[in-house]
Design a protein around this nucleic acid. Structure first.
Lengths: 218, 218
DNA sequence: AATCACATTATTGTATACAAAAAAGTTGAC
DNA sequence: GTCAACTTTTTTGTATACAATAATGTGATT
């Protein structure tokens, strides 16, 4: 046996929820999933526990586990929280960042720019992630960085949506450069607000998308 | 059966770890715990999964679950993160707080003061918690408030230590009043830095305690 | 005595069995 | 036809059984 079934299944289920294979409120049927994954209920239950712990699903005692997709309100709250946490990371990083990390940010930005012109969205996502993860790490606080990573990962599927908006990629690039400038200058206030705005705008754009979809559906 | 064994056991184990019944690196033996709690391994394993998910323990595949007490470095990082998150809550609350909540903060502070003079530490802890939880809630962002609560709860056993320091309670009270003043004035910057300092000092005091204990032990 | 190979034991991870509770279905009165 | 009480089925939660891997012990060899 390669690795633990429970871990593999938890990752798979997480992916299924994130890619929208399940709707909000869907019950995660243990027996059905057990058959589907070709295992017994035991590893399925362990996987479900993990989903519940990470907030992807909710458990109602003696009723089952139900997927819990964040609604528009909670998503906006999560984006606002992400913006504030990134701002904190930036504020701390402005005073603690290493020259090497600054070079890495510039490199990631350069590759991002290339990806934009080449319309290579995968590369863009990859370098964009590297950019943000570097800032988290350079906060000099690995606990904080861990929390930032967690939320960043949670919001990933939703961030991808708004990045599809026309002109958003170019705007995002400009914001990245402002962030690097502030970090270079060691200006913690400016770094914080640049990052807060950068992520905050993502939330805003996302809200627009939501309301558009909602009105279109009616 | 009242409630789920797994949940009850998870709470109990959490409490045991927090109160220092287990040392860092101790293996949480499934069979021993099963006997101890008078249940089978199944609910024990579910409880252990919850501890792992909340970062209280670590799982090494096919080796077992080991308690993972944060070391001095990680604790300082957690205090710093708490300080920053509280600052964020304060910044947002300064613009969003209701009159009723302001009154609640003042009431909690008044009761805190009474508790200090009466040397009623339990009452102090209770009202102190109410003070902070109110600020989290008044950030107007329930996701953020939830994250703040989580970390606050995680740090609880360590915060209690530093509050025992001479003069700390009175100082803490003064800080609380400064925070309320800033919130009343709607001054988000001042509220943020007052809260950041208030919690940051706790981390500092805690660090002193640690180093003192360390030198005393040598 | 130290070390390596091998056998034994212990422990984790998974499967299955069972108990208790909830959901679904059925019957009967109105 | 509707509703309520009861029965059946389904599903969760827990116990136990089994399989696979890691830890431990034993003995031969140097």
């Amino acid at each position: 046996m390669e690795i633990r079934h429970a871990d593999r299944i938890a990752d798979a289920l997480e992916e299924l929820v994130f890619t929208g294979q399940f709707n909000d409120g869907d019950r995660l049927d243990e027996i059905r999933l057990a058959k589907q994954f070709g295992v017994s209920r035991t590893p399925i239950r362990e996987a479900l526990q993990r989903l519940v712990a990470s907030g992807i699903a909710e458990q109602i005692p003696r009723r089952g586990v139900f997927v819990r997709q964040p609604g528009p309100v909670e998503l906006m709250e999560m984006f606002e929280t992400m913006a504030e946490i990134e701002a904190v990371c930036g504020r701390l990083a402005a005073r603690r960042i290493s020259d090497e990390a600054l070079r890495e940010l510039e490199e990631a930005n350069a590759l991002c720019r290339e990806a934009v012109t080449a319309h290579d969205t995968d590369a863009y996502y990859r370098e964009n992630e590297r950019f943000h993860h570097t800032i988290y790490a350079q906060s000099g606080n690995s606990y904080l960085a861990g929390q930032a990573l967690r939320l960043h990962r949670r919001l990933k599927p939703f961030r991808r949506l708004q990045l599809r908006l026309r002109g958003r990629l170019a705007q995002s690039m400009a914001e990245h450069e402002e962030i690097v400038d502030a970090l270079k200058a060691g200006d913690d206030q400016r770094a914080a607000s640049a990052l807060r705005d950068h992520v905050g705008i993502q939330g805003e754009k996302f809200r627009h998308l939501i309301t558009e979809l909602r009105t279109a559906a009616q």
